[in-house]
């Protein structure tokens, strides 16, 4: 195929978009709506995951040691814990530091004269932060088997809830997006089928003149891909324009939750959303048109 022929078929594809304006607009509108929803879901899911991840950073497991375990042994256990893949960080608190923190938090450093010695003696501990809360159970099982560890404190409810919600949101979103993409492929396929029926005469003449399969089919495939690209571009522009406003208004409406609601920036969202949305748009355009062309054009 010559480059000239490639551009000729591309131009015919562009012209095809204007030939069936109503069907083209319907297809673009549907794909735009689907991909707008996809963009919204993606933004929500990514932000949710980001917030969950931030929250996961605060979920920790605390371990206390048997009586008589000296500091050297405690540090040795600490090294073993650090080496675990589930662990992102550990923090050692001595019994004195624990008592200081307790006094400050609950007695505001008053009324402590009744405690001549440290009542939290033997409560030196490691606070262990996880890389992924879903791995908490395996870490806890291991910690409970380590010699010298008396007690492991953790909240399975928090960890399970966070990883569970994360999964549910991801699966539900994926399901919804798949259904929407299926609808888009069907609509593009219909637009191309109408385009083929409108141009039946032209296709017949092409065949009689000796046009190759590529020459006959390519304009329709380009048309589908262009519809997909335009259908992807519109929601991307809209999401780009409204994302910052939505984030700002969420922060303004819930100022008390600012520490929890740590949103991703537009750039962080678009780093993946832009190529993925364009890819999906062009991809469904290609799939919808190629399947229709194969079905309706026996050339």
């Amino acid at each position: 195929m010559k480059i000239k022929t490639f551009f000729y078929t591309l131009i015919q594809g562009i012209k095809g978009i204007f030939r069936n304006k109503i069907f083209t607009l319907a297809s673009i509108a549907t794909i735009s709506a689907c991909l707008f929803l996809f963009g919204l879901i993606y933004s929500v899911v990514m932000n949710f995951q980001h917030i969950v991840k931030t929250a996961q950073g605060n979920v920790s497991v605390t371990v206390f040691f048997d009586e008589g375990v000296d500091e050297a042994n405690i540090f040795a256990i600490g090294e073993q814990i650090k080496a675990r893949e589930e662990v992102s960080d550990i923090k050692y608190t001595t019994a004195d530091e624990a008592w200081e923190w307790f006094q400050e938090k609950y007695f505001q450093n008053k009324h402590t004269e009744g405690f001549p010695t440290n009542p939290l003696e033997g409560y030196q501990n490691y606070e262990i932060f996880l890389t992924d809360v879903s791995k908490q159970e395996s870490l806890v099982n291991w910690l409970e088997s380590v010699n010298g560890i008396r007690e492991v404190k953790y909240s399975s409810v928090t960890a399970n809830a966070l990883s569970g919600v994360n999964l549910i949101v991801a699966y539900a979103s994926a399901g919804l997006v798949l259904i929407l993409l299926g609808v888009s492929v069907f609509l593009i396929s219909n637009t191309i089928a109408v385009g083929i029926s409108v141009r039946k005469e032209e296709i017949t003449i092409m065949k009689y003149c000796g046009a190759t399969d590529f020459f006959v089919r390519a304009p329709f495939v380009f048309e589908g891909m262009l519809i997909g690209a335009i259908g992807a571009g519109i929601p991307l522009v809209i999401i780009y324009m409204i994302y910052n406003n939505v984030v700002e208004s969420a922060r303004a409406k819930f100022p008390s939750l600012t520490s929890i609601l740590c949103f991703l920036t537009t750039d962080e969202i678009f780093e993946i959303l832009l190529p993925v949305t364009l890819g999906i748009g062009i991809g469904i355009g290609f799939l919808g048109s190629i399947s229709t062309v194969r079905r309706h054009l026996r050339v």
Partner: peptide, 13 residues
Amino acid sequence: RGKVAKFRRNLGI
């Protein structure tokens, strides 16, 4: 199928 197109280039209809 591929050769039919090229063959038809020998015919005017």
